[in-house]
Simulated scan of single mutants.
Amino acid sequence: MLPLLLRWLVLDATWHGTSADCQAHDGACWAFIAAKLRFILFAFYPVELQWRPSLVCLLLGGLLAVTAMPRVWRRELVISWPIVILLCWLLMAGLPGSARVSSNQWGGLPVTLLVWTICFALSIPLAVLLSLARRSKMRALRLLTIGYIEFMRAIPMVAILYFATLILPMALPAGLSLDKMPRAMIMISLFWTAYIAEVVRGGLQAVPLGQEEAASSLGLGYWRMMRLVILPQALRVVIPGFVNQAVGFLLATSLLAVIGVVDVLNAAKAAATDPNWLGFYKEAFLIVAVLYFAIGYGGSRYSHWLERRLAPPR
């Protein structure tokens, strides 16, 4: 297969020209990627304002890169997350400035990164609280938590998105309206929380009971014990589970297409429907696959490094 693949990718490929030039050859049409790359990355966002989604991608990438360094895990980092997220949202909306951009025009890579980052960041603290509630000695709280987790894990994400689009607007108070993007992000965060809570619960069960007894004997209250003793050990254990869920959630953002949100995968699909470049789906999907693989593989290697970095001394 490798010689045939090399021939299609490189030797017989068309690197520049028009659609007619590509159809005259049997190889890949990289001229299509050169012509439609801006649309694949930013979809229907106004061309004259595309510096805004470009800056959003840089800000989110920088935030994730800084967060990945253990030496900067301080209170200032927690404060910087909502500030950067708010700034990215304002940039995508065309603020500050006179040219407002509706969320219906958002699309491509910035939407994928924005939805993924915000929903995953909201899900983690909620999941920690949910996992602690599931282990609570209060029977009513424990049963409610179990019911919520099992219910969310028993329905597909597509149903959650349809609920955010069709049912949630009717449940809002009169006079209050939300765009489909915030509605979808709220429901996705609640949906992902159930999955991450089970990962965190596995980490809590892996911490020996003696750790909790030792912390109690030192006079630590429940919340101080969890913050200083139990959760640091539990979260270190579930790093591979976190990364696995994060990569899976990144790929799941492509389901936003069912409610009309154009992520990077659906932007690539739409690019191949252009009458001037009709049918070059293989090239479009290949570019997006490389992008997904780079993020997923990078996260996998980072998790291995972080496991070694945080491993307790033996």
Rank of each mutant, 00 (worst) to 15 (best):
L129N: 15
F44Q: 12
L190A: 10
S102E: 13
Y297C: 03
P3W: 03
A270Q: 14
R201L: 11
A68D: 12
P46D: 07
L251Y: 05
G219R: 02
P232G: 04
V229F: 01
V158F: 11
A234L: 02
L87T: 10
F42M: 10
V56W: 04
L178C: 09
L91C: 08
L250M: 15
Y195D: 06
V56Y: 05
R52M: 10
V288K: 00
S80P: 04
P82W: 03
N244F: 05
T67H: 09
V128R: 14
A267Y: 05
S103Y: 05
T273S: 14
G279K: 03
V288Q: 00
R139T: 15
C29R: 06
C29L: 08
A267K: 03
L228E: 15
A35V: 12
G296S: 14
K180G: 12
P110R: 04
G175S: 08
A252N: 09
F120C: 11
G296P: 02
G279R: 03
V78F: 04
D26A: 14
S102I: 10
E212G: 01
V264M: 09
G298M: 05
M185Y: 06
W81C: 04
M152K: 02
G221L: 01
A140K: 04
R201V: 02
I188G: 01
L64V: 13
P169C: 08
F32I: 08
Y195S: 13
T273A: 13
R314D: 12
E283M: 05
R135D: 14
L55C: 11
D274F: 07
F280L: 04
A197G: 08
I160N: 03
L310F: 03
P82V: 02
Q245W: 01
Y302S: 07
S216H: 04
R301V: 15
R7S: 14
S80A: 15
V262N: 06
Q50Y: 00
P232V: 00
L122H: 10
T273V: 04
L306V: 02
A267I: 12
L166Q: 11
P169G: 09
M152A: 14
P53C: 09
L11P: 00
A271M: 09
L228I: 00
R314Y: 01
